[in-house]
Amino acid sequence: MKQILPDEQAMAVFGAQLAQALRGGGVVFLVGDLGMGKTTLSRGILRGCGHAGSVKSPTYTLVEPYETPQGPVFHFDLYRLSDPEELEYLGIRDYFTEKSLCLVEWPDKGAGMLPAADMEIRLSLHGQGRELTLTAQTPKGQVMVDRLKDCLAVTAEGT
């Protein structure tokens, strides 16, 4: 599934819609070059999950945990990871539970240590905006994509 977003505000709104599709937890890989909006999308998802506080980029901490009304959300940014083995020291397995939602920026840096993604979201330039390509990687991911399509259809009907 592809989605074109014209600006940062649209990215945040889309993230909030996406949060509804991600209820129940799962693993989402966010893939794209620097400045493509991965953290902005994550911020929108967290807002959509009901988090009202600040959302920090986990660039230096590698992971930021959030307790939301929708359940635990862990936002990873592995950009500064020099070796995937470092994730073992973080207790990486403790974060990926059945009920948690794990948003992982730069998942390639954790290759071999991360569980498989339920959904991969690729972000790329599209004019002044961004193109998001959402791909289900598991049956759970397909449920997420289908929920998102339903959510977007309802939103389109209301406009």
Results as ranks from 00 to 15, higher is better:
V31D: 07
M36C: 12
G71M: 07
E85F: 09
V145T: 13
R43N: 03
T39N: 14
L62W: 04
T97F: 06
F74L: 06
Y95E: 04
T61W: 03
D83L: 04
A10W: 01
G127F: 01
P65M: 11
Q128L: 13
R122A: 09
G25L: 04
D94H: 10
I92M: 00
Q70A: 13
L132D: 01
S100N: 05
G26T: 01
A21S: 15
G35I: 08
G44E: 10
S42P: 00
G112S: 05
G91Y: 10
A156Q: 15
T59M: 08
P58L: 10
V63Y: 06
I4E: 07
A16G: 12
P139R: 05
L78M: 11
L103W: 06
E157T: 12
T97A: 05
K149I: 09
D7Y: 03
K109L: 02
L30V: 02
Y79T: 13
F74W: 04
V55F: 08
Q9E: 15
V27Q: 01
G48E: 00
T61P: 08
V55C: 10
T159E: 14
V73W: 00
Q142I: 05
A12C: 10
F29C: 02
D83N: 12
Y79K: 14
I4D: 03
H126F: 06
A153R: 14
F96P: 08
Q17D: 13
G50N: 11
V154S: 14
M1I: 08
L90F: 09
S100F: 02
L152C: 10
M119Y: 00
T61G: 09
Y60Q: 07
C102M: 11
E98Q: 09
Y60R: 11
E64S: 12
L101E: 03
G127I: 03
E131W: 08
V31R: 04
P65R: 13
L81D: 14
Y89L: 14
G15T: 03
A52M: 09
H75I: 05
R147V: 01
A156V: 12
I92F: 00
L90K: 05
T155Q: 15
T61K: 05
D77M: 10
P139K: 07
L22G: 03
Q142K: 10
L125Q: 15
G44R: 01
L46W: 02
Q142C: 11
L22R: 06
G112N: 06
S82E: 15
T39P: 11
A116Y: 01
S42H: 07
A52H: 09
R130V: 03
F14V: 07
R122L: 13
C151I: 08
C102F: 10
A21H: 13
R93P: 12
R147L: 04
P72I: 06
D94T: 05
K38V: 00
T138P: 00
G44H: 03
D146A: 07
M113K: 15
T135Y: 02
H75M: 07
P58K: 09
L148F: 06
T155I: 14
L134W: 04
K149G: 15
E86R: 00
S82W: 09
G35V: 12
K109R: 11
T61N: 03
